[in-house]
Design a protein around this nucleic acid. Structure first.
Length: 490
RNA sequence: CGGGGUGUAGCGUAGCCCGGUAUCGCGCCACAUUUGGGAUGUGGAGGUCGUAGGUUCGAAUCCUGCCACCCCGACCA
């Protein structure tokens, strides 16, 4: 088990163990760096899926599914793409095992595949190979398809949630008749991601564009959302790529336009992954555990009864039944934790660990007074409120909590965007308070690489809302027309 | 793949230098008392000491190989 992924020195294994564990089949190097996502963690992923999927549908997309295995030859078709992924692919070479006669199961060398299969690191190649057969005319466009899938990247070094060997994600792959339409699509989906991150996850993000150096393998332009974690490191939380005609050319996907001209289609791809769960954890959690924003929490309210006798329990049960159905009628997900195997204090701590936004506790005393105790996860405050109008009150309170979590993260993020004018200042901010450093850069890959070598900081993005201003590169002193954001990143 | 570190019960560990079948805490099980912030007491269960070999009367401990994990690099969503 690795230490806490917040890098703040604490061992978070106790509580993120409730979400996920690293595969612990220690003797199997093949599953090294993979995750087992436990039910509670998976419920969080399902919430993310549900919210995103709804937005994809609203923006005109449909889900489809493509094969896990990609013939090796597909990878030779787009040069920069294969270069980007070749060093981290799992390859299937055989299709059968056999008993070697002494009870050992070995690979049957006679069952060697004629052409090796690659376990998809991303699906551009197999999808574009398929799209070739789907497109003839401009009438067949656009193709707006999304896939929910798992992919495998044989990373040399894995990191729980952030860089696992296998991860779950969605990948959208669209085909368009014009360049402008494809660019518009890539930008639209970036907005979908940004709104999701900020509105649902309560994680503020910077929308930007990657430099040539950080661009996706095969893309002409990569848009991204960059988030800031509590330890001052940046995290790329989602990307949307304008692929130009690269993949259409590589896989010969052509269409006849209205004007009767034969042309290659224009493409985009965009994706977010289970890395978002890492972002969520590192952006909001505290020493008591996870902090989930209400719009994402699989359980929004937990109700803990406090009782000594069966009669007390019965009275509380009756009240909670009515309250629960009233809350469920307002689309609030409620968990009534009436286990008699744990004491109330234990339950309080456990649900805090799991990040449930709001807790209602009530015992005989409350029943006599017609009150309940409300405890907020985000700021750890408690108040006693009347049972009268409670449903209305908590519905409003959940909204307030959502807002408060976002505002807290936003304040932190904004305090950690530091403009600097010199390289010395640049280095001292990176080594000290961390976060994003906003500065001028001469626009060259060489400078970016040298800064990375010396400071480990990379250009996270050129913000989309960057303003034009005259300046000089902090590293080379050459002229620059706008600032970029550097940071140390995960 | 390079540098460093670590593998002992479900989890976290002591013991290793200086060889004699394993310590403590959490968790687990039973019973009792408890129950408005992670209960307490008593009793109990649970271990191929990562793995293979070597040295030795005897190995968690010494030696060698291998494996895995963690941290730092290179690579990356």
């Amino acid at each position: 088990m690795s230490k806490g992924i917040t890098s703040r020195g604490e061992d978070y294994s106790q509580w993120y163990n409730d979400l996920v564990v690293k595969a612990d089949l220690a003797e199997h190097s093949a599953v090294r760096g993979c995750m087992v996502i436990k039910p509670y963690g998976y419920a969080i992923w399902e919430r993310m899926q549900a919210v995103l999927d709804k937005r994809f549908k609203e923006t005109g997309h449909s889900n489809a599914y493509f094969p896990l295995f990609i013939p090796k030859s597909f990878f030779s078709k787009e040069a920069s793409h294969v270069e980007g992924f070749a060093t981290e692919c799992a390859v299937v070479t055989h299709y059968r095992l056999k008993n070697d006669g002494t009870g050992n199961i070995i690979v049957d060398e006679e069952a060697k595949l004629e052409e090796e299969l690659i376990v998809r690191p991303t699906s551009e190649t197999i999808i574009w190979n398929t799209y070739r057969g789907w497109v003839e005319s401009y009438r067949d466009l656009p193709i707006l398809v999304n896939q929910w899938a798992n992919v495998v990247r044989w990373e040399m070094r894995t990191r729980l949630f952030l860089r696992t060997a296998e991860f779950l994600w969605q990948e959208g792959h669209t085909a368009h008749a014009t360049e402008a339409e494809a660019i518009e699509e890539a930008e639209r989906m970036l907005d979908v991601y940004a709104e999701f991150a900020e509105g649902t996850l309560a994680v503020p993000v910077i929308r930007g564009r990657k430099t040539e150096n950080e661009r996706f393998a095969g893309a002409l332009d990569t848009y991204c959302i960059e988030a800031l974690m509590q330890d001052g490191k940046a995290l790329q939380a989602g990307t949307s790529h304008f692929l130009g005609q690269n993949f259409a050319k590589a896989f010969d996907v052509k269409f006849t336009s209205k004007e009767g001209k034969l042309d290659h289609v224009w493409a985009t791809s965009w994706g977010v992954s289970t890395r978002l769960m890492g972002a969520l954890i590192m952006a909001h959690s505290d020493d008591q555990g996870l902090v989930l924003p209400p719009k994402l929490a699989p359980i929004q309210i937990v109700i803990v009864p406090i009782f000594r006798t069966e009669e007390e329990k019965q009275a509380i049960d009756n009240y909670v039944d009515a309250l629960s159905s009233e809350l469920k009628g307002r689309d609030i997900s409620v968990k009534y934790d009436d286990r008699d195997t744990q004491r109330p204090g234990f339950k309080f701590a456990e649900w805090e660990l799991k990040g449930v936004p709001l807790r209602i506790a009530l015992g005989a005393r409350d029943m006599a007074n017609g009150t309940v105790e409300l405890a907020r996860r985000d700021n750890q405050t408690k108040e006693t409120v009347s049972q009268e109008g409670l449903a209305d009150y908590v519905v409003a309170l959940l909204d307030e909590i959502q807002e408060a979590i976002y505002t807290k993260a936003l304040t932190f993020r904004d305090e950690h965007i530091t403009p600097v004018e010199s390289y010395d200042e640049f280095k001292s901010v990176l080594d000290g308070k961390g976060g994003f450093v906003s500065c001028h850069w001469d626009g060259t890959v060489e400078t970016e690489k040298r800064v990375k070598e010396e400071t480990k900081a990379t250009i996270r993005c050129i913000p989309l809302d960057v303003k034009e201003e005259e300046g000089i590169c902090i590293f080379t002193g050459k002229p620059s027309r706008h600032r970029v954001l550097f940071a140390k990143a995960y």
